[in-house]
Amino acid sequence: MGVNVPDSLKYTKTHEWVRIGDNSRAKVGITDFAQHEITDIVHIELPEIGKQIKKGQPVAVIESVKSAFDIYAPLSGKIISANDSTLEIPEIVNKSPYGDGYLFTIEFDDEKEIEKLLSADDYKKLI
């Protein structure tokens, strides 16, 4: 399967991607592989802004017609923004999982947690 795994991102075993930005901020979404497995996404629930989250905790839900998938926090910290356009048009997560279809932004607490995330190569091996 020709799924896209950009080298510039970090990954989790539960198929989230993380783009580390400035000021301890990170953007989070689901991988191309995950959106492919989930198939047509019909509904999304995003975390509230300001919510404190712990790494590994379920924070969002992505739903297809007959399944629902939990999305786990890749890092501990605070939710500082959520991509509301995915609520209106959930299919953008299918179309652009690394772009317009990202899910939320975290302000993370501990930089050390980043080291534990998977590299693109590691993630490719996993899938």
Partner: peptide, 12 residues
């Protein structure tokens, strides 16, 4: 909207 229901979501 079936992903609300028990046969999909089970305990959630």
């Amino acid at each position: 909207l079936q992903s609300r229901e028990q046969h999909v979501r089970r305990e959630k």
